[in-house]
């Protein structure tokens, strides 16, 4: 089994992963040897802090070991080796491959080439399924269910995280509000994908009016390089920043998530509030990746 795109997973499979994640979380403190003698190969052709470290932590918590590289600078890629050859080489050294690569479709190709299971840890602007799974798990753990009012804020045009999360939340019949600056709206094609499901969809430029009815506020970064005019960027950035006063009409049990890294779209004062769950979200990444690793290595049913 490979984990390449959230779209490959059925609702049932996602539920199974979330249940398994909960099992992993409950047993995280116990010495575990589920993946003893198994080797994880982490091929990070692009740098990442959270994803790589949490995969490695997850593997070690299950008794396995990790090998790999954290930037393509040191790999034979620098010498001009193509991806197919790299995969055909590395699969001899390990039992499961986690790959992050700047080109879209690279993980699907790796899975096609490799006889060992492949997990996509981000292929360019396309997919990052374990991020989506941990987002779902965070929501489920913190709120108990997924059919909620979720507001996705920020760059909805280029942000792969929000694309996949919106798709997954639509599968679970959530009510989704899309909030972005003009020009960074979610592409029509993706909206059409969402409408396949029984989903309530709203699009707006107005963050303030969307907050009171939200159960989950999922905030993402708006990248400076998307704006030709720096002044325009500053304006937009200000309008979509979450400050304590933005939350004055928020539900008492609102949770705020962010895939991180954060620049300044959530002001640091929010960190101290009960709403802030983005570091908890990081923590939940471990049991989710434990579940995914155990599943693809067929260590669990």
């Amino acid at each position: 089994m490979d984990i390449i795109s959230i779209k490959d997973l059925t609702k049932g499979e996602i539920e199974k992963i979330l249940d398994l994640s909960e099992f992993m979380e409950k047993n995280m403190h116990i010495q575990n040897s589920l993946l003893q003698n198994k080797i994880l190969g982490t091929l990070f052709f692009e740098p990442s802090t959270r994803t790589r470290l949490s995969f490695e932590a997850a593997m070690k918590k299950l008794g396995g070991v990790c090998i790999g590289f954290a930037t393509s600078k040191y790999a034979s890629v620098e010498k001009g080796e193509n991806l197919i050859d790299t995969i055909k080489t590395v699969e001899n050294y390990c039992d499961v491959i986690v790959i992050r690569h700047p080109k879209e479709g690279s993980a699907r190709l790796a899975a096609e080439v490799s006889v060992k299971p492949v997990i996509n840890a981000g292929d360019g602007a396309n997919q990052h399924p374990t991020q989506t799974l941990l987002d779902l798990y965070t929501i489920k753990r913190e709120k108990g269910r997924l059919d909620l009012n979720i507001a996705l804020v920020g760059d909805l045009k280029y942000g792969r995280t929000v694309h996949s999360l919106a798709y997954a939340m639509a599968m679970f019949n959530a009510s989704i509000t899309l909030i972005s600056p003009e020009g960074l709206e979610m592409p029509d094609e993706l909206i059409l994908d969402l409408k396949k499901f029984n989903v309530t969809l709203k699009e707006t430029y107005d963050l303030e009016s969307a907050i009171p009815r939200s159960d989950v506020l999922y905030v993402t970064r708006i990248q400076k390089e998307r704006f030709p005019d720096p002044e325009e960027y500053e304006k937009v950035k200000g309008a979509y920043k979450i400050r304590p006063e933005s939350l004055k009409n928020a539900k008492q049990d609102l949770i705020i998530l962010h895939p991180l890294p954060r620049v300044d779209e959530i002001s640091p004062e929010i960190d101290q509030t009960k709403y802030a769950k983005y570091f908890k979200q990081v923590y939940y990444g471990i049991p989710v990746r434990m579940a995914v690793l155990a599943l693809v290595l067929e260590a669990v049913e």
Partner: peptide
């Protein structure tokens, strides 16, 4: 940016 443009 699709991988098909970079691999054989």
């Amino acid at each position: 940016n699709c991988i098909t443009h970079f691999e054989n």
